[in-house]
Structures are given as structure tokens and as C-alpha cells.
Amino acid sequence: MPWALYLGCTVPVRNLNYEASVRRTAEKLGLDLVDLADFGCCGFPMKSLNAEEALVIAARNLALAQAAGCDVTAACSACAASLAEADHQLAHDPALAKRVNERLAEIGLKYTGGVRIRHFARLLYEEVGLERLRAAVVRPLTGYRFAPHYGCHYLKPSEAMDHFDSPDNPRTLAELIEALGAEAAAYPGLTDCCGGGVLGVEEGLAQVMAYGKLKRLTTLNVNGLVVICPFCNVMFEGQQKTIAKKFGEDLKVPLFFYPQLLGLALGIGQKELGFKLNRIKDKDMMKALEG
């Protein structure tokens, strides 16, 4: 079954390097990604104001996927969780499913369940698998060391994610990094929240939350931080300069979206992977991995 690529609000505007690397690595690995023209917001931004409205919006997107005969893969962790949670709730609460479907009927849609929702990193881990990834690597990232950052909604609520990885001791992203020949750093604070969820409500709180991890990264001897969510990227890359100034630190931590690293290892060019849009780069590393 094809995978409908769910981009959400942020990735297709602010993280074109993430999107390009998702598309190009998927193609190289033979994953069948398709675009559904009417995918929009996943509903998560509405959840604080009205959870049922958020659920209707999520279910609407799942209904579109169902009608198109697709499963769903999301680049954004908040979208992946919002859609997976909606599917989980509707599957376990028939009265709720009935109410939501009455709303969907008004726009000519229906969701009966069964669409699989996978974050793109989970898709790589489960559907492609580490063995096939290792076999596909043509330019191993041997000698490089990266810190994985899982973020929250990739793993949690774990119930809605079939407990595919541990929220306390996650391994999947580290294993995906190691499959490329690189080393994945284990470090205290691995599962710390980036703070992105409160950036719009209290900026200073979000910044102090991200600062802890950025500061620790400077002591880990890594080539960069590997993220798989646009909000984590906003906090660690977009806010890094502001945070450095605010806390009087000299921070220059390069950020990578995992599919960008994967793309390098698969032999895809840096231009195709959108590296021009990465704001903080390890120039020596990028030069060594050229061509």
C-alpha cells in the first residue's frame, strides 16, 4: 500500500531541507510515497481549545487517506502523534467515532479505521529495517558521532504508538544513526523536551528548556544533533543564536534532520538534500562528505 506523505503546517514552509531529504531517501529506498492535495493541519493546534474539534480535523485527514487507499507517513512528530492518537481513540470509543463521523458526513467523508500512521523515522526503522538500510549505504559515515534527539511526540503517548519504542530508554533513532556507520552518543538528558510546545506562550521558558541540551552537547564531542521534528528544530537550530546570547554561551551545534544524514550515506548530493538551508554547519564534515 502506498504511503501518503503528511507534511502538516511547518515542514512544507520552513523545513524544505527536511522534506527534500524525506522524499529523496524514500525514492532511493523504494518506498512508495504519494501526495494528497487536500492534506492540511493535523488538528493538534486546536487541541488545547477544543479536543473534539482537533479530533474531527485529524479524522478528516485519515478519512482522505482511507478514501485514497493509503497509509500515512508524517515528517512532523506532532502530526504523527495527533493522527495516531485520533485513530487510537476512535478505535476504542464507538460513541465518539459515531459523533466524529456525523461531523465528517457533513463534508462527505467517513473514517472507519485501519489506516496505519507512522512517523517517517519509524517507517524507516520498521518497514525498511536496519538490515536493508545498512546494505543500501554507499558512503558510510564512519568516524562521525551524532547525538540523537527523539523529541516527545515521536514516542508518546506510547499507547497510541503501539509502544514501538521505549519513552524512557528509546533506541530506534540511535540504531538508525548507527546503521549509517556513524556513532550515536548516549548522554544524560537524552529524552529532555525541547520546549517547543510552549514557545508561543512563554518564549523564555521554551528557551531555558532547550538551553540545557544545547549546553550539554558542547561537552559531548559530537558532530551535531539529529532531530526528526520541525518544533525540535525550531528550538535547537532556529533559536540557538538567541539562546547563546541570552545565556552568554558560545554555542555552535550543527543540526541535522535524520533523513539528511541518511541521504548522505545513500550517496545523494548535498544540494538535493537541501543542506543549503541548514543554518549551522560543520564545514569540514560537509567538505569531507562531498562528491
Binding site: 511547518t10 514552509v13 520552513r14 527534500a20 522524499r23 492535495a37 492540511g40 493546534p45 478528516r60 457533513e106
Partner: peptide, 30 residues
């Protein structure tokens, strides 16, 4: 949450990415 206009779609095209629907259906009605 972020508006898509010709400007965004031009940036996307520059990186070889497909155009995105500026106004996906249903949100007004929902």
C-alpha cells in the same frame, strides 16, 4: 497555521519540491 502562497511554492520549486494546495478543502466548513 502557515499560509502557502506563490512565494512559498516558488521556494519549493527551486528545491524540486511539488507545489502545495494553497487552501486545502473543508477547513472553513469543519
Amino acid at each position: 497555521l502557515l499560509e502557502i502562497t506563490d512565494f512559498e511554492n516558488k521556494n519549493r520549486a527551486d528545491l524540486g519540491l511539488p507545489a502545495i494546495t494553497e487552501r486545502p478543502a473543508h477547513y472553513q466548513a469543519m
